[in-house]
Amino acid sequence: MIAIIDYGVGNLFSLSSSLSYLGLENTITRDPQQIEQADHIILPGVGAFADAYQKLEQTNLIDTIKQQTYNGKPLLGICLGMQLLFDKSYEYGEHKGLGLIHGEVCPIQDDLTQPLKVPHIGWNSLHFPKENPLFQYNKEGDYVYYVHSFYAKNCQEDTIATSEYDITITGAVNKGSVYGTQFHPEKSGEVGLKILRAFAEL
């Protein structure tokens, strides 16, 4: 069973539909007991970092999430859900994150050297600086779908995929049982389905 955390932020039903298409049992929940009983956890997210963290606090699930990852249960943060995994974000101020992966979330716009559009929206290819089981069914250059204005920095040690958008965008990270994708696997066609299937096998 895969528990998709419902804290009022995220494209939950698209994600649930993708998992169901793969034949993977899943539930959308904010029940700590269901999360504890699940084999895997997904933390989705769209919108603003501070608002999302506050909503996560209001569900009283932060301790549950952290404890499950400390116990070795696989957790996948998607888009804003991945950003929440980091120490802090500089999205409209400075805000603390879950601290499960070291690094910080910063504006793309501040680092661009070319006049590219922000948000970074659309399909971009993946590059893999190291092998990781999350991408066991994927190949170098596979395209995935991004929608974001902020990106993770100073996390090279835990970076397992990148994309180029004038600068190097952190596409995916992994530390222990904690994984994150800046892109949306559930919006990335067959490539994304392969990633979700690999996550379910971790």
Rank of each mutant, 00 (worst) to 15 (best):
I2V: 12
A3E: 09
I5R: 03
Y7A: 02
Y7G: 00
V9R: 00
N11D: 05
L12D: 01
L12E: 01
L15Y: 04
S16N: 06
S17C: 06
S20F: 08
S20E: 12
Y21E: 14
I28E: 05
D31V: 09
E36F: 14
E36C: 13
Q37Y: 06
Q37K: 15
D39T: 10
H40P: 00
G45N: 04
G45D: 00
G45Y: 03
V46P: 12
A48S: 14
A50V: 07
K55N: 11
L56R: 00
Q58V: 04
T59C: 06
N60M: 10
I62P: 11
I65T: 09
I65V: 13
K66V: 15
T69W: 08
N71L: 15
L76K: 01
L76E: 02
F86G: 01
F86H: 02
F86T: 04
K88I: 04
E91D: 12
Y92G: 02
G93I: 13
E94K: 12
K96F: 12
K96N: 14
K96Q: 14
G97M: 09
L100W: 02
I101S: 00
V105N: 05
C106K: 15
I108A: 07
Q109P: 00
Q109C: 03
T113Y: 11
K117P: 04
P119G: 12
I121Q: 11
G122R: 06
W123R: 03
N124G: 04
F128W: 13
P129W: 12
P129Q: 11
P129Y: 09
N132A: 15
P133C: 06
L134K: 01
Y137F: 15
N138D: 07
K139E: 12
E140R: 05
G141V: 02
V144M: 06
Y145Q: 10
Y146K: 03
A152P: 12
K153W: 00
K153E: 10
N154T: 05
Q156G: 10
E157A: 15
I160T: 05
T162K: 12
E164N: 14
E164K: 13
E164T: 14
I167A: 00
I167V: 08
I167F: 04
I169R: 05
N174P: 04
N174K: 08
K175I: 00
K175L: 01
V178E: 00
G180Y: 00
T181S: 05
F183M: 05
H184A: 03
G189P: 05
L193P: 03
R197D: 12
A198M: 10
A200Y: 11
A200M: 07
E201D: 12
